[in-house]
Simulated scan of single mutants.
Amino acid sequence: MTPDNAPDGAPASRWSDLDRPPLNVPALRRGLLVPGSLWTSLDVVTATGSTNSDLAARAASLPEGAVLVAEEQTAGRGRLDRTWSAPARSGLFFSVLLRPGGSVPAESWGWLPLLAGVAAATGLARSAGTDMSLKWPNDLLVTVDGEERKAGGILAERAGDDAVVLGMGINVTLRADELPVPTAGSLALANAVSTDRDPLLRAVLRSLEHWYGEWRAAGGDPAASGVQEAYAAGCATLGRTVRADLPGGRSFTGEAVAVDGQGRVVLVAAGNGERIAVSAGDIVHLRTAD
């Protein structure tokens, strides 16, 4: 189908949709790469397989704070290598390079994807005017027609001994007929007041810089930094009865009552009061129980 803005007879181009303009790279750099900022470089590519993979491959030669953004991601990955795809320029697909070592012990790095969830939810709530919530451990939720839908995901991966590549995929302007699955959503479908990707990206990165700075200053302590409290306040999983599907075909059903100091979700069985703490690395699925 030829876009509305294409001249008569012109070939259709996925890059000529005025509803999905390209990111303004010079403006983004002016706003984010300032003295004293965490962000040290920002590159935008037209398309790539995975920004996480690309940034991890270059991690050894880059300083902390490198940002890589793709207008289109063709082989985006989520947790457990689940795929993430969306039309070109329909969302924010980016990765950042962080080096928390030195001030934060490695055993606390598991909080990074949860911290990123807090940062994305707070940044998008302010800039897009959309209520956001978090599904443990790494999903961003919006409400579409009264139903919770996944509009974003987060993936953190080690890149050598001292670095972490933190990636995000956020659906911004996806229409209903473009959703990869019926349970997905987007900021546009959630009636966001703004879907301009430039201010949305700036807001998320500035929010991430804030929360990462607080967390590092506290030596990775999620309670002292306020990250644990903020995550719990925005986590839609807490207070619900959920079923945790575990490796080996095992499952556990209970009320999600807390996220502990290690970032694990704590479940309590209704019948016998059995209590378990499940880490993101131990779980295959976490679903609301029927």
Rank of each mutant, 00 (worst) to 15 (best):
L141C: 08
M168G: 05
G153D: 01
G152Y: 05
V144M: 01
L55D: 01
A121Q: 08
V165R: 02
A47T: 15
G117N: 07
E147Q: 15
W84Y: 12
T74A: 11
D131C: 12
L141H: 02
R149F: 07
L98T: 06
L124G: 02
G101C: 12
A156T: 07
A59M: 09
G123V: 03
A156C: 15
S37G: 13
P113Y: 02
A163Y: 00
T130A: 14
N52D: 11
G123L: 07
W109D: 02
D43G: 08
A57T: 09
A116P: 02
V96K: 04
P26K: 07
S127V: 04
E107P: 05
A86V: 04
N52V: 08
D161C: 11
S103H: 13
L80Y: 13
G110V: 08
A57Q: 14
S103R: 15
D43L: 12
Q73G: 06
L92Y: 04
S90D: 04
A47L: 12
P26R: 10
V45F: 12
A47V: 15
A59I: 05
S53H: 13
S53R: 14
L92C: 07
A75Q: 14
L42W: 04
F93R: 05
S95Y: 02
L38A: 11
V104M: 10
L42E: 00
T46C: 11
T74G: 09
A88H: 10
P87Q: 07
A56C: 12
E72V: 08
R99K: 14
P113K: 00
A66Q: 02
D145G: 11
G76E: 03
S50R: 01
V104T: 10
A156R: 02
V142P: 01
R82L: 11
V104G: 03
A106F: 13
T51S: 13
R89V: 10
R30Y: 10
G146F: 09
P63W: 07
D81R: 14
A159T: 05
A56D: 01
R77V: 00
G49P: 06
G31P: 04
D145S: 15
V44F: 08
D162T: 14
A121L: 01
D131R: 14
G78R: 03
R29M: 07
K150L: 08
L28W: 03
D162M: 05
P26L: 09
R29E: 09
E147D: 14
L33K: 02
S53E: 15
D131K: 11
V96L: 12
E147K: 14
S133W: 09
